[in-house]
Design a protein around this nucleic acid. Structure first.
Lengths: 117, 117
DNA sequence: GGCACGTGCTAACTTCTCTTTGCATGTGCA
DNA sequence: TGCACATGCAAAGAGAAGTTAGCACGTGCC
């Protein structure tokens, strides 16, 4: 996931996903070590239901991965870990990504009838 | 604005600002050349009122700058241009930023696991 | 069985964001 | 004076996002 040139839609999704304090904290915790949902919720001090929503978004954006595993005592636990990724935000990179946005707005240049000039 | 280590709040604001197709296109157009509001709106094919809202957010995030100037025929025109900025998004950078988030969630780690349910 | 722990889901509420619509101001020019 | 162009702002609706609460399922163990 080392981004060389993300598409506009992809970039929008990633940025929207990371533009949230909860999800930033989730990434921060997962960087240290992989973790399963319930424990992660406890460490972050948020409800499990809320965490799941954020984890789903992070996963949808490709920033984290989930692995369902069975613990020694037979309990199903869903482990999450962060993926490697590098997104570099500069005006130029953004301009390039913007060109690939779907549903592009009309950039028509017809009515050039300025009263002045 | 070459970010060495943005704060969590700052990062969230920048990401939230850039996570929008319209604003990405605005940056793309302004990278090529500075422009004033009305013309920018025409080129992007969106209403002026809508563009102003987006420009305000971009400016609030420090990504663009505005300069009010008078044209030859005396009309007041507000020119916008993009600022230089570099934000590098990696799991580690995000983890670092997350540590500086205000209104941090309680990350308590004691035997407070009550069965309140 | 009942409790503690893990998972999943959804309905419903609140809050925020986006977008449109409308009106206000000012200038230059035919 | 009236039109074309520039600016500004705010109310209000529509839609998306965030959050809570509640229920479902499964396992191991006293």
């Amino acid at each position: 996931m080392s981004e060389a040139a993300p598409t506009g839609d992809e970039l929008v999704r990633v940025l929207a996903t990371l533009a949230n304090p909860h999800r930033l904290r989730v990434v921060a915790v997962l960087v240290r070590e992989r973790n399963y949902v319930s424990r992660l919720a406890r460490e972050l001090g948020i409800s499990r239901a809320l965490l799941q929503v954020h984890l789903r978004k992070l996963e949808a954006a490709g920033l984290v991965s989930a692995h369902l595993e069975l613990s020694e005592d037979g309990k199903a636990m869903k482990f999450y870990e962060v993926n490697r990724f590098v997104f570099t935000l500069t005006p130029e990179a953004i301009a390039a990504a913007a060109q690939t946005l779907t549903i592009p707005h009309a950039v028509e240049r017809d009515g050039e009838e300025g009263s002045r000039s």
